[in-house]
């Protein structure tokens, strides 16, 4: 865990990538999708396959900002027993072997409220979580979790959207730490993609207000799109496309097949190669 004042794993990772002249690949998959063992195996394979930052989705019954693919992933995860405390246990299992790759939990507020905000921040940090993205907690409502997150060295990563206007942007950015998650489309996950032109206009707009690294998410599917986003900003988040690869590898009953882990990691490798300019 990061102590307050210490450089976080997230800051370190972005800084070292910047020094080496490339952007980061951030991957998103849901914990327990499609089952705990497969989920842990994928998680353990991600750094080797080229994920620079790992986002772990926390399953929720009502994922308001997510498209059909991630809605279904949440249903698979819940069916296989996903809970917030089990997601933290998954992170601990991962951390037992891997210390360098930052882990960000992404999800919705209610499971955290139910767990208890104070206890959650303590347990998340001690489990090896580095940052939180809580989709339905905008800066206006963040005062109930921000002090606890800070006290435990957890970065609170804010979403910035195309609708976040210039009047609002400084306030949103002032409250963020770790990196800025730029939601590149007005829409839900996995539905459409931003154009190069809109990204080329939006990222400098955000940069004028912050020195933090910016990762672009929502709508990045292909290695080429990931490479482009990682070059325009400081990182590219790929979620739905990986969740789709995972889903396509399952059998008719939604169970993992022997090549599920390999197929997901192969897809990550292809993205990583492109982001690293090896494609």
């Amino acid at each position: 865990m990061n102590r307050p004042g210490q450089t976080s794993r997230i800051a370190e990772r972005f800084a070292s990538l910047k020094a080496s002249g490339r952007g980061a690949l951030l991957t998103y998959l849901q914990a327990y999708d499609p089952d705990p063992a497969t989920s842990l195996a994928i998680l353990r394979g991600l750094p080797g396959a080229g994920a620079d930052v790992i986002e772990i989705g926390v399953a929720f019954t009502d994922p308001m900002a997510d498209g059909p693919a991630i809605q279904l992933a949440a249903q698979r995860a819940l069916k296989s027993g996903a809970t917030l405390s089990r997601t933290l246990a998954l992170v601990r299992d991962f951390r037992a072997e891997e210390q360098a790759t930052p882990i960000v939990l992404m999800g919705y507020y209610n499971p955290i409220l139910s767990y208890g905000i104070d206890r959650f921040c303590i347990d998340a940090a001690s489990s090896g979580v580095d940052g939180l993205i809580i989709v339905d907690v905008p800066p206006e409502e963040a005062d109930e979790i921000e002090p606890q997150a800070k006290a435990n060295g957890l970065d609170l990563i804010r979403l910035v959207a195309p609708t976040t206007d210039d009047a609002r942007l400084p306030g949103v950015l002032a409250a963020t730490s770790g990196f800025v998650y730029y939601v590149s489309i007005t829409g839900i996950t996995g539905t459409k993609s931003a154009t190069r032109e809109s990204l080329a206009a939006e990222i400098p707009r955000i940069r004028r207000h912050t020195d933090l690294p910016i990762a672009i998410g929502f709508g990045i599917r292909t290695p080429a799109q990931a490479a482009e986003a990682a070059s325009i900003a400081d990182g590219a988040v790929v979620g739905t496309a990986l969740v789709d690869v995972l889903k396509d590898s399952l059998d008719e009953q939604g169970r993992a097949k022997p090549d599920t882990v390999r197929r997901v990691l192969d897809a990550v490798r292809a993205l990583a190669d492109a982001v690293r300019g090896n494609a």
Binding site: A65, V135, V137, E141, T163
Partner: peptide, 19 residues
Amino acid sequence: RGRFGTFGGRFVAETLMPL
């Protein structure tokens, strides 16, 4: 803040917040 005691508020994603 749109709260009745502790209830209410505006727990929406950033995309919706300006709207």
